[in-house]
């Protein structure tokens, strides 16, 4: 609130020229006027984010589970995982676009790359944090590895998984927008590039706020799913 008030004051007293910093009122106006357009573009971005995140989650599950099961794979892949994170998104996006064209494919690929890492690492942490005594107790009951995995390891890792997922959903949206900047026909990033080229700063701000809202909503959605999937967490609080 305070930020918005200061912002309104700065614009109201003409401290900064309005073509450089639009007033909150004009941003709100642009937001409302362009809302249908924003929705339309967000459908594309959300679709990319959804598909990319889905593939990212599946890949992360497979990779993390195999890495946990086979020590050698862990040692071999872990450094690669880290390196994959140091590649700047903005740098590989144009390469992906050159390889895959201007459709959704390169955007999805970029989202997969950015979301895959946090989920894999959080899952690996989750698998490693499992109580060794619980594992040996199950083994003493005659449980096989697959049983131990599905009964102990996977459910014990869920809270870490959701922590990783929460980060990943915002990465997914931002990743999609960045990929769209560099070429495409629709999507919030494409819209952003257009208004930027037209120097429509009010619309620029409107789309930024829109993206923030989408990311927040997605994070809330993750929390809700977490609550639905892990009912014991809620009930555990009260005795």
């Amino acid at each position: 609130m305070l930020i918005v008030a200061v912002w309104a004051a700065v614009c109201g007293f003409d401290v900064v020229p309005s073509y450089m910093l639009p007033s909150p009122q004009s941003v709100a106006k642009a937001f409302i006027e362009d809302f249908p357009l924003l929705l339309e573009h967000s459908a594309t971005t959300l679709a990319e984010a959804g598909i990319g995140l889905g593939i990212g989650i599946i890949l992360a599950f497979v990779t993390a589970s195999l890495m946990d099961r086979f020590r050698l794979l862990y040692t071999a892949l872990y450094p690669l995982l880290i390196i994959s994170q140091t590649i700047p998104t903005v740098a590989i996006a144009p390469i992906l676009i050159m390889w895959m064209g201007y459709d959704m494919a390169p955007k999805i690929a970029l989202i997969v790359i950015t979301t895959f890492f946090p989920i894999t690492v959080s899952l690996l942490d989750g698998y490693a944090s499992v109580d060794k005594d619980a594992v040996s107790l199950l083994r003493s009951m005659g449980a096989k590895n697959s049983r131990i995995f599905f009964t102990v390891k996977l459910p014990s890792s869920l809270s870490q998984f959701f922590a990783g997922l929460k980060i990943s959903v915002s990465y997914a949206v931002v990743g999609g927008v960045i990929a769209e900047w560099l070429g495409g026909f629709e999507g919030l990033g494409v819209y952003m590039t257009r208004v930027r080229k037209a120097y429509q700063f009010d619309k620029m701000f409107a789309v930024i706020i829109f993206i923030i809202i989408i990311s927040l909503l997605l994070m809330v959605a993750v929390s809700l799913i977490r609550k639905a999937v892990m009912p014991w967490e809620r009930k555990g609080d009260k005795k």
């Binding site: 005594d133 619980a134 040996s136 107790l137 083994r139 003493s140 009964t151 014990s156 869920l158």
Partner: peptide
């Protein structure tokens, strides 16, 4: 040969999600 005798520890080791 593990798995023949059941045991119980100070830690209950009940799975929290079941």
């Amino acid at each position: 040969k593990p798995g023949k005798i059941s045991y119980m520890l100070q830690k209950d080791l009940l799975l929290p999600y079941k």
